[in-house]
Design a protein around this nucleic acid. Structure first.
Lengths: 418, 418
DNA sequence: CACAATTAGTTCCGTACAGTACATAACTAA
DNA sequence: TTAGTTATGTACTGTACGGAACTAATTGTG
């Protein structure tokens, strides 16, 4: 992907660049006047007007009747509005339990949303559900397939960056290959992009309110039975050489407590770190601590894995001493992992997501206390806000970014419509 | 650093874009004809000619008399040459032992080089040496200070990105603050940039032959008494939120061997990992092993720290069993650190530099063997090629990049001095 | 109700840049 | 000497921008 230097072959190039600038500014604050846009972009009023007329012909922009002026004197400005409804994108999230489809306009406003429960591992059935849910979403938003400009689907497993084939999925073996791509391709005439769910969740979480204008490097840790992380640097999702960056679960720093059952972990394909701090380990810890303290009720009520998390989190929230003690231990361990993240990546903020985030502020407090003990200044910690929606939001975001890059002329690739 | 969208306010913008394109192409292969440039850039011949005349006025380019043609027919082309000598940059590297100053032209060709030995921690003396060495370098190249367009100095310690103040330097306490900046500012009328030595060494190593067109993520580990790393992702040096990314030395995963003398390490400002795998530790290991094996000659000949490294490396190269055994142990430890790098960053290649690199291929072989034991596919390992020159090359490189970005006022997408 | 004041948008013109087409220059080989 | 080939130079056209001047719409005031 080498970027060859841009060339201005013809004055038309200027129009493209300027149209892009105007559109970017217009999207930043829609509903401004021509004069205001001129001031903001640094262009002359005429240049802005010319760009606006081009955009108007393309349907991306419309001029509204002069509004009631807030000013006391002068001719009221003609208000220019970005027509977010000019195009739409689809974001999809696939998990073993359900399929989620969200349609949004070019402004990112969600206009329709459908969820279908999933069971079994029948590829053909999944394909039918996918087609039906996409169609239902479009119908519910009153859209035809050709009004969708881009679609992006997040699925578990490793997605090949180039061929878009799904290479490996432990939890959903039937989606390997190009099943999803083919199915979506047959019901949508627009480009379709497949990506890893954790990666998209990172994008989604990053763009939530508050992080929207965030510039610094960020790490989003998905902390559940497994532990993985998405890394955002230079305002982009970093994937690593083999699309495996942020594989926190395979950190090897837990040499204490060697009786963790490395063999078990290996059998399940778990890494050393996730076996040591994952939710399975937390529930075990809570159970052991509770037994030791004689609280057999709590010990018995704990199921395995992520489901047991809810029970543990509940116990924690009501101040149960066994749960608190277990959290203390698990956060001590996790803080060592965060120490490695800090040392190598030095992120500005670490966002904790996944089932473990249900422990809430307790988690942050305990982690912060442990991080204070370390010799490097720790990053800021935050809790993830989106939970289930993260993947679908990230998918929407990716789709919108693709539209921006391709259809809406953005600076380097300055082109207006195809 | 928010990049506001470029705007073409005035047709001059096109000229700038096209001039940048021409200059980029010209730098890629200097000594081509106008027609060839037109073909390469996609511009018309006239556009190229116009850009060339502008560059010629600025002195950045010159037209050579028609050469003896290689072709058999046709009018010989007018050859255009990039005048690398039109401007110069200075790269400086400061270590506790010496100061190195290199002057290069805009093509990156070194035109003068001076080295001054350093001792003690007297700020005023250092300042005098700095001024004298810079002056000597300029004299030896026949340059006046105003012919230098940019200077960049690499020094140990944390450099504040914005104020350019050196905040902390264990090995050179007297350079804290703005001493270096003030001194350089008073003898050079051009912009001066200060940066961390490891970061600059990374840039230097990255641009060496072979890596020049390298696209993938890369980590350069400086392995000496201290251990630090530079990280290159998205083809850029990654610094982290507090300019401290890649601080491998402070990794905390060496819970075995707790008698390492953490107190000592703390006193010297060393991190846990570097105390565990640094060259000081290696020489101790070699000494202990040699003693145990009864080789008192080798044990006695080992000095402390980086100087002892030479003796150790020598012993290793002649196949000394004690040195080999010590290397085996130290690489086992280091491989754990590389495991963390792999898990979090997933680099395509890890380059090993610093004094430890003197162990040569032995080092790579031992490390690779240990990495094979880990559960994630290891990155490729390479030895650094530049050694001492890395910092100064990186500094030169940074200076050239700054010239490209600032002095020539070119669009950020254009890369002239890659 | 006319008219100044104010702010917004539009028209016209000059300048600058790139591309196309054609003319000219330089050189080789027959 | 002449034809062929390649590179350069010049004239002309189309498009885009900015500035000045002009028109439009609204409010307040005598």
């Amino acid at each position: 992907m080498d970027v060859d230097t841009p060339v201005a072959s013809g004055t038309r190039y200027m129009r493209e660049v300027n149209t892009a600038a105007v559109l970017t500014e217009l999207r930043r604050c829609t509903g401004t006047s021509v004069t205001e846009l001129a001031r903001a972009t640094g262009l002359s009023r005429q240049a802005v007007t010319r760009s606006i007329s081009g955009l108007e012909e393309g349907g991306l922009v419309e001029l509204l009747a002069p509004q009631r002026p807030g000013r006391r004197t002068g001719r009221p400005p003609q208000v220019v509005r970005f027509r977010a409804e000019a195009g739409h994108v689809l974001g999809l999230a696939l998990t073993p339990e359900e399929l989620r489809v969200v349609a949004a306009d070019l402004g990112g406003t969600v206009v329709a949303e459908e969820t279908a429960p999933l069971t079994g591992t029948d590829g053909a059935h999944l394909a039918r559900t996918l087609t039906a849910t996409v169609t239902a979403t479009l119908d519910s938003a009153g859209l035809t397939p050709d009004q969708v400009w881009h679609a992006c689907l997040g699925a578990p497993g490793i997605v090949d960056r180039h061929t878009q084939q799904i290479r490996f999925t432990a939890s959903m073996p039937h989606i390997a290959g190009d099943l999803l791509l083919r199915t979506l391709g047959s019901c949508l005439p627009c480009p379709v992009h497949l990506d890893n769910d954790v990666k998209l969740a990172t994008e989604g979480e990053r763009r939530r309110a508050g992080h929207d204008r965030h510039e610094g490097p960020m790490v989003l840790v998905q902390w559940g039975e497994r532990v993985g992380a998405g890394i955002v640097v230079f305002d982009r999702l970093y994937r690593g050489a083999s699309n495996d960056a942020g594989d926190l679960g395979f950190l090897d720093l837990c040499v204490e407590d060697p009786g963790t059952g490395q063999a078990d972990a290996d059998a399940q394909g778990l890494g050393a770190f996730e076996a040591w701090v994952g939710t399975t380990r937390l529930t075990s810890l809570v159970r052991e601590t509770a037994e030791r303290r004689g609280d057999h009720t709590l010990a018995r009520s704990l199921q395995e894995g992520d489901r047991g998390m809810d029970t543990a989190a509940e116990a924690l929230h009501r101040g149960d001493p066994a749960a608190t003690e277990a959290l203390e231990e698990i956060t001590r361990r996790f803080a060592k992992g965060l120490g490695a993240v800090r040392a190598l990546l030095d992120p500005e903020v670490v966002v904790i997501g996944g089932p473990m985030a249900r422990c809430g502020e307790h988690l942050l407090t305990a982690l912060n206390a442990h991080l204070q003990q370390q010799r490097l200044d720790p990053p800021r910690l935050e809790l993830a806000a989106l939970e289930e929606d993260a993947i679908v939001r990230g998918a929407l975001h990716h789709a919108l970014a693709e539209v921006e890059r391709g259809a809406l002329a953005l600076p380097p690739t300055a082109r207006l419509f195809s």
